[in-house]
Design a protein around this nucleic acid. Structure first.
Length: 206
DNA sequence: TGTAGGATTACCT
DNA sequence: GGTAATCCTACAG
């Protein structure tokens, strides 16, 4: 299905997610344009998904997820990182796809400037917070439309089905057994899988 | 390779 | 008031 089709995102997120692999997401910011070829994504299905931010209902932070598909949900976590999701359907069911990793295919210089700590270009968007930083995305982009002035999905070439792999989601405590993480086999920009590790108890309580 | 530290949001007691 | 969270970086070894 063509990402330019208005119905592209108005489907269940586990259906949309593998269909995003290999597609090009363009981010237009005042400093310039960066485009990323998506290589790793995760689907979150909404109110029925214990790993989803939508699971416990609507809050000020996750309100965008409860709106129609075709918008970008950006959230702040761990006190310093932003991650971005595409809100999917069907309808207003709070489905979303987290963009986890990709290959920068345009604006590499700009992405390098935003990701000074990256030692290789494959690390520029290797991880959800890294991808968001490489695209110059922060809190202000929460609720941006897709397509819109900032974000566009290019038709591009979808990934070959035989390269798509599926497995458990990363870094989630609940629902980690649901195989809603999708990635391109062998791609060097895919972030290494990390099982969720409960955060160490604070020193004072030890 | 492992782990500590960063510091917001939201839920829980 | 406590703690876990869709995580990354620096540094030690």
């Amino acid at each position: 299905m063509d990402p330019a089709d208005p119905c592209f995102l108005d489907r269940p997120s586990p259906t949309v997610a593998p269909d995003l692999l290999g597609r090009i997401l363009v981010s237009e910011r005042p400093e310039g344009r960066v485009a990323v070829r998506l290589t790793e994504v995760e689907a979150y299905t909404g109110l029925d998904d214990p790993a989803s931010h939508a699971y416990r209902g609507r809050t000020a932070r996750n309100a965008v997820m409860f709106g129609p598909p075709g918008f970008v949900y950006v959230y702040f976590t761990y006190g310093m990182h932003f991650c971005m999701n595409l809100v999917t359907g069907p309808g207003t069911t709070a489905g979303a796809v987290l963009l986890r990793a990709g290959e920068i295919v345009e604006g590499v210089e700009l992405a390098r400037g935003r990701r000074r700590s990256a030692r290789r270009d494959t690390e520029l968007a290797q991880g959800p917070a890294r991808l968001t930083q490489a695209l110059g995305i922060a809190r202000e982009q929460n609720g941006e439309p897709l397509p819109g002035p900032v974000f566009r999905l290019l038709p591009g070439t979808p990934a070959a089905p035989e390269l798509i792999r599926q497995g458990p989601r990363t870094g989630v405590a609940q629902g980690a057994d649901t195989p809603y993480r999708f990635w391109l086999d062998g791609d060097p920009t895919v972030s290494p899988y990390r099982r969720h590790v409960p955060r160490r108890a604070s020193r004072t309580s030890q």
